[in-house]
Structure formats: structure tokens, C-alpha cells
């Protein structure tokens, strides 16, 4: 076990009411590493992120974040440990302006990206800061959902399908931002359908099927393990 391990998930089972979705997920993410969870729709990738945040029903197993067991913690305590969550549906509030959305999550530690720098990174958000959150375009909403968790000083980012349904130029911009975040030593868990987006960013990829990790591929093994990817993802 490496001391730089930031997230360790062991034998994680999660349920929605009676449905058993995760069947013993096992994986780790080291500090400063970007790991991508790949898999088909319904494989349990989004549920994994939700389980990490405490947003599913019953959970069993173990989730260690920076050395703390969080399996029995309520969501707000987990977030306060420094976890930023960007949900698949983006979760922009219609009752809040763009800026209120941005400022909503309380700071969890010092060293978050300051508001001036966020507006530099995402100039659109500054222009539209007084608009109702849900009046923003899809791309702007995605930027907002990302920017919102960078402000808080969270060091572990859980990003769910952030490239989904966006124009190529915006996807490109998001890739640049993640590259920049990696340079700043953020720890990132990326759930992606878009293999081409995730492949160059991820240091490792975990392939998820039926609620468990069935294979793990490091960045340098990508070429040789192409057949494996083909088999699991059809890419």
C-alpha cells in the first residue's frame, strides 16, 4: 500500500432500494493521479461516484479518503473532507443565479482557485454571472459545474461525464483544464463514456462491468491492451 494513496475503495457494494448496483468495487487513486472509470452504460460508474459521496441507498465495504473511513458518513461530512463532486446531470440550480451557483459550495480548505482566476479560466461565467443558472447554455453550465468545485479547495474531484453532449471546442477546453489541474496536483476520478477524451488525460483506466472493476490499464499499456478495450468497450 502506497503512502501517497488518496482514495482506496475496497469491496464496495451499493444499493438503490432493493436493487444491488455495485458488487464489490476495488480500486485506488494516488495523490495527484487521474484515474478514469470506463464502461458501458449501466455498468455502475455513476453509481460508484454517488456511493463515494454517500448519495446512494445502503452501502457496505470500505471507502478511505486521505486515510479516513467515510462509508458511514453523511454526504456533507464527506464533502468537507475535500471532495468536489460534479454530477452527470450537472446539477445547476434554477433558483440561483450563475454567480450564486458558483459561490454556493462552502470552502473546505484554503488553496482553492480564487474567483478572479476562475473568471479568467471561464470568461463566459463572468459575463453571465447575473443570469439564472439554468438559462446558461449546456457548455456554460458544464463550466459552471466544474468551476463551482474548484473554488472550494477540494483536492479530490469526482467528475461524471463532463464531456457528454458538448461541442468539440468546449470538450477541448475541458481537457485543457483537467491537464492544468493535474499539474496542480489535484486527484481526479473521471467517469467517461468518451474514450477519446479520457484516454490522453487518465494515468490509469479502470474498466467497470456489472458493478465491479474487471480490468485496469495504465497509460503506457494502452497500445498493447487495445484488444482488451475492444472487448469491453467496443472502441
Amino acid at each position: 500500500m502506497s503512502s501517497s494513496e488518496y482514495l482506496r475503495v475496497s469491496d464496495l457494494h451499493a444499493f438503490y432500494a432493493e436493487s444491488h448496483i455495485l458488487h464489490g468495487m476495488d480500486f485506488t487513486v494516488r495523490r495527484g493521479e487521474c484515474v478514469s472509470l470506463l464502461g458501458r452504460n449501466g455498468a455502475g460508474r455513476t453509481t460508484t461516484l454517488r456511493a463515494l459521496m454517500g448519495l446512494t441507498g445502503r452501502r457496505t465495504g470500505s471507502i478511505m479518503i486521505n486515510g479516513r473511513e467515510v462509508i458511514n458518513m453523511p454526504p456533507h461530512r464527506i464533502a468537507q473532507l475535500g471532495v468536489g463532486y460534479c454530477p452527470e446531470e450537472r446539477g445547476i440550480y434554477s433558483g440561483l443565479s450563475c454567480e450564486e451557483n458558483l459561490m454556493l459550495p462552502p470552502r473546505v480548505s484554503s488553496g482553492g482557485v480564487c474567483i478572479e482566476e476562475i473568471y479568467e479560466m471561464f470568461p463566459n461565467l463572468k459575463e453571465r454571472r447575473h443570469s439564472q443558472g439554468t438559462r446558461l447554455s449546456g457548455g456554460e453550465q458544464q463550466m459552471l459545474a466544474m468551476a463551482r468545485i474548484l473554488r472550494t479547495g477540494a483536492r479530490l474531484l469526482l467528475l461524471d461525464e463532463i464531456s457528454e453532449g458538448l461541442a468539440p471546442v468546449i470538450v477541448q477546453k475541458l481537457a485543457e483544464i483537467i491537464t492544468e489541474l493535474k499539474k496542480r496536483d489535484y486527484t481526479i476520478l473521471l467517469v467517461e463514456q468518451n474514450f477519446r477524451f479520457a484516454a490522453p488525460l487518465a494515468d490509469r483506466m479502470c474498466i467497470v462491468e456489472h458493478g465491479e472493476v474487471v480490468a485496469e490499464i495504465a497509460q503506457h499499456e494502452l497500445a498493447e491492451k487495445q484488444p482488451l478495450l475492444q472487448e469491453f468497450l467496443g472502441v
Binding site: L55, P75, H76, I78, Y85, P87, G91, Y93, G95, I149
Partner: peptide, 15 residues
């Protein structure tokens, strides 16, 4: 307002 609209997500932001 956020908690009224989407309580679970709001809690996942640390509130």
C-alpha cells in the same frame, strides 16, 4: 433555495 431545489446534491457540496 439550493436545498429546497435539490437537497441531496446540496448536501454533497458540504452543506
Amino acid at each position: 433555495r439550493a436545498a429546497t431545489e435539490n437537497p441531496r446534491l446540496t448536501q454533497a457540496f458540504g452543506i
